[in-house]
Simulated assay, not measured.
Amino acid sequence: MFTSHSIGRWREAFFYALMFLTRLPVGRYVHGADAQIAARAVYCYPMVGLVMGILLALAGSVFAGLGPLLAAALTLTLWVMLTGALHLDGLADCMDAYYAGHKLADETERRNRILEVMHDPACGAVALVSLVLVLLVKVAALASLWQTGHWLLALVVAPVLGRTAILPFMALGDYARGGGSVPANASASVQALWLVALICSALVAVSLGVVAAAVVFAALALLIWFWWRLWLGQIGGYTGDCLGALVELSEVLVLVLLVALCS
């Protein structure tokens, strides 16, 4: 049974998730978050996506009169600003790390090399190319959705599903580092992660329709499985960078699929 204390703890977990995944000024609502708050915050990730989606949709309504390409570019700029490029940084680190260590034959050496490069703040050529391609595809997809009139739905659905994808991914594997700001799945119930992901997916399916939802969810499931198998083989689990990169790849996939389904 929910008490005022438990409701307050969940409210703090939501604001912790919002503070962790975005640059929105909500830090004053988080008062000395502990390990339990950090673990509960994971379940709030889809809600963070919903907040972002609403803000992007509102901004898109302002930019709509500027033409599809400029509206898409300005909306994507706000999208990146809302997250502080957090997930793009994760994608860049993953790309650099993978290509730095994937050819090493020794498993321990490969794992250590990849984790070392992930931790390095420097950005290599592979990372830069990956970022350019992801942003290019995103802005092109948004411009196409603007032309077909389906941009509003996309701006809400993509951030929600991008952050919902984190939950089953965490349920599949283990955290690869000894410490960090991302809670391992030992701190969060695997069953609860799956349950929250399924509930969020069902709610999104209502807005997408049966056919579109089936296509999008099947594609996302394949992406999550591929991303999990890739890093399981490379480092035996996941890191925060892997989660951030998954958000970006999921958002790109959802936008591209919506363009294909709505054209």
Score class of each variant (00 low, 15 high):
21 L>Q: 01
22 T>Q: 03
23 R>G: 13
23 R>E: 04
23 R>Y: 11
24 L>D: 08
29 Y>A: 13
30 V>R: 02
30 V>D: 10
30 V>Q: 12
32 G>D: 14
34 D>C: 13
34 D>P: 13
35 A>E: 15
37 I>P: 06
38 A>L: 06
41 A>N: 13
41 A>I: 07
42 V>S: 06
42 V>A: 14
42 V>I: 12
43 Y>Q: 15
45 Y>K: 04
48 V>M: 11
48 V>R: 08
50 L>I: 10
51 V>W: 13
53 G>L: 12
57 A>V: 10
59 A>I: 04
59 A>V: 04
59 A>T: 02
61 S>G: 15
61 S>M: 14
63 F>L: 11
64 A>R: 15
64 A>G: 11
65 G>K: 08
65 G>S: 03
66 L>V: 09
67 G>A: 14
68 P>Y: 12
69 L>R: 10
69 L>S: 12
74 L>G: 12
75 T>D: 13
76 L>D: 14
77 T>E: 10
77 T>K: 06
77 T>N: 09
78 L>M: 05
78 L>R: 01
78 L>C: 01
81 M>H: 06
82 L>A: 07
83 T>Q: 05
84 G>Y: 08
84 G>C: 12
86 L>P: 04
87 H>G: 04
88 L>F: 06
88 L>S: 04
88 L>K: 05
89 D>F: 05
91 L>K: 02
91 L>N: 04
92 A>T: 03
92 A>M: 02
93 D>C: 08
95 M>W: 02
99 Y>H: 00
101 G>W: 00
105 A>H: 04
107 E>L: 02
107 E>W: 02
107 E>Y: 00
108 T>S: 00
109 E>P: 02
110 R>F: 03
110 R>C: 02
110 R>I: 03
